[in-house]
Nucleic acid binder design. Structure first.
Lengths: 333, 333
DNA sequence: GATCTTAATGCAAACGTTTGCAATGATGTT
DNA sequence: AACATCATTGCAAACGTTTGCATTAAGATC
């Protein structure tokens, strides 16, 4: 309490060595005799000493911090509370920690337009992970061009001057749709917004399967929320009756919204309509009927994101990469 | 790219002033003539200059960073992916930003045992927000005693040497239970773990209502996950049949797990069994039937947490506080 | 015994800000 | 005309590390 903050030079004096020796000892530098190192480390623990990160960062010119910025456009209502996005952040957090880095949680509000200036020049972080490619990639591209070490969670097929990691959305959409067809659906419905890069790929997969099987199909463009899905299915049923027998929803939240609308109107799932979602959020297996879905391997993706970012930090350049997705069959299909 | 990092002294030279003038100008210090200030600020923008945060923090002795640490005990399986916890973090993020601070997302893994040493002495953050009181408060208490500015999301009734913000869990439990009874339930079931501080209060509210109304009640102690709830309801139905007609679940995830088990066995909700959850996560209104629940005002709580933390930073001492919760009636009851 | 190598440690500069104090010039007062 | 006041700016120290280089002591080699 009353005591002033212990600094490295104090610790050194307590140990009877110079500041530089103390510094090297704490960093386990083999220049220092082993027993000296251990003695100083023990002393540090005993006195609850910790290195002043601000000073260290200033001197080292690196922060050991990675910024994660959640990149949501104002236009869409997909909220920051989307369980899937938050799961991605959570997995990134773990992956970042495993590599000895810390995670600065940020957003457009703080970082403004000039991400390179804010994070890199501002020495707030050594690199940036962007979650959510969004529809507008100007800021990401600008940051990358300015030399920001940066990786993006999004659609890996998009060509860009930065590496993108994400699921194989096309295959995912294809598998989901073929599964619906295999289960007997012949009048398909895609629910989502193909204007969004990742969802566009899923839609391409959907269309591919539809054409191959020569079945009917329609697409309803909606906001990526359960509310929008609920409302649109309700409207569709009211206006035209049951014009479909299989739904591929662009996300689980959307699928669950649709599911609710169907159940309220006594449409049986999966007998009358089969549904497959995308993401495999926790709720998918707890809904009733449990939701079939395309599971995104966020854990593997998070690890890849971090690895690619770190390799950029050591000067290498790396490419976009898809991570396999997996069809999880449950009761809804 | 090839150009070296612009520093304050470079900017000053470009503007034809001293470094100190440039510094003051960027901080809008009225000591500097207004037009000089504006000229330098414009120049900074033009050259994409940003202050080196590491240097600034070193000199200022403060970081403008708040650490949020998610405090989950190893024993319970409540995962970091719990949508409610993540919503709290997300709301805290917004509240922190509004005050001009950044958010460092951390956990026991990085911070270790000595939070004061790691965050405060280590100059990584100016204060700490702990999400999740947990069952074991030794680390929090130790950090507080060491002088860490700290606030906790948890049960405000717990007496502690740090301020706790959270919902009025007792009232919440009381209201939920009285509502169940008012809807005709007379054989109640509490699903959760009263050993956990917040849940204990909810259980107290439950018991209070039960005693007042003199109805039957039982409690099943389970892990706070939908899987555990699903499994326990299943087991109970199999072993004893339908021995209850109202469930107060300690969280929405738990409620939804229970709901699924009931629906699978064709128990009608809300006709045979009424259910009320706690939290009001996004899924509550999209489940079928939509889940009645006690809504926690995470937004207000987040703001309170941040305000209390900042007032600690300016030397004030502050008390725990409850935020009102709200019974949201939907179809499940 | 003188020189060379090696292991271990210390000295001092640098990282880029912010800020108390001093300095300057201009204006107002006696 | 001498002096006090005020607005504006600059000087230089300090924040607490890390690290290239110099130094020391001890053992090895000739």
């Amino acid at each position: 309490m009353g005591t002033t903050q212990l600094k490295l030079s104090d610790l050194a004096r307590l140990a009877g060595v110079s500041t530089s020796t103390a510094s090297r000892a704490l960093n386990d530098n083999p220049l220092i005799k082993k027993e000296t190192r251990e003695r100083i480390q023990a002393l540090a623990k005993e006195h609850h000493f910790s290195v002043n990160a601000a000073a260290s960062r200033l001197r080292m010119q690196k922060t050991k911090v990675i910024a994660v910025i959640i990149n949501l456009e104002a236009e869409t209502k997909q909220s920051v509370d989307d369980p899937f996005l938050l799961k991605v952040v959570s997995d990134i957090n773990r992956a970042v920690n495993r590599k000895g880095y810390e995670l600065l949680l940020s957003n457009s509000y703080m970082a403004g337009e000039d991400w390179h200036g804010y994070f890199i020049s501002g020495r707030r972080a050594d690199g940036v992970i962007v979650v959510g490619q969004g529809k507008e990639q100007a800021r990401i591209e600008r940051a990358a061009r300015a030399g920001t070490p940066i990786v993006v969670w999004g659609d890996p097929k998009t060509s860009a001057n930065y590496p993108i990691v994400g699921s194989d959305n096309f295959i995912g959409g294809l598998n989901a749709t073929e599964h619906l067809i295999a289960r007997g659906a012949s009048k398909l419905l895609f629910l989502g917004d193909p204007g969004h890069a990742e969802l566009g790929e899923r839609y391409r997969g959907f269309c591919h399967a539809v054409e191959k099987a020569k079945v009917e199909a329609q697409m309803i463009k909606i906001d990526i929320t359960s509310e929008a899905a609920y409302a649109s299915i309700n409207a569709l049923l009211r206006a035209q009756g049951l014009t479909f027998d299989g739904i591929f929803a662009c996300s689980d939240m959307v699928a669950l919204g649709a599911l609710k609308a169907l159940k309220e109107r006594y449409v049986s799932v999966p007998n009358d309509v089969r549904i497959v979602g995308f993401d495999d959020i926790a709720m998918a297996q707890i809904s009733f009927p449990a939701l079939s879905t395309i599971k995104q391997d966020t854990n593997a993706a998070a690890q890849l994101l971090v690895e690619k970012l770190l390799s950029q930090l050591s000067g290498e350049t790396c490419a976009s990469q898809e991570v396999p997705s997996l069809l999880v069959i449950r009761q809804s299909s």
